[in-house]
Amino acid sequence: MKINLKVNGKDHTSDVEPMMSLAAYLREVLLLTGTHVGCDTSSCGACTIKMDGKAVKSCTILAVQADGCDITTIEGLSQNGEMHPLQASFKENHGLQCGFCTPGMIMTAENLLSENPNPTEEEIRHGLEGNFCRCTGYHNIVKSIQHAAESN
């Protein structure tokens, strides 16, 4: 099926099988491998991207459902070579170890802060309910998001 969509500001037209998930489309067709697949069934959050302004789990969306949508992946978060404040904060606060959950974590945090620029610790922790990290114990992830919120 033919789909037209915008990814990280660039228009794409592709012919895809309906079985293909949006995560697989981004990774395999557009070679945007920053979007990771950890469970493929919408639990772990590693595949989180922004679709029409909202964080969603791209493993549980068919590529064909994204026809006409505006997508941002982790690769599109930096602007003009400048890291997004969340990216910078994750580095500054050691908010990642193996890095596999990190893109999804950052994309979720971006949604969280866009709707609630000054979240409490509890709101941040609750906001990360859909993202698993096995390395950090979440400690420095929460700190990273707090820090990004404060510096905004």
Binding site: S42, G45, M51, K54, A55, I61, N111, G127, G130, N131
Partner: peptide, 9 residues
């Protein structure tokens, strides 16, 4: 329900 991402979709 669910989490931020699930609630968005």
């Amino acid at each position: 329900i669910g989490d931020i991402q699930v609630r968005n979709k």
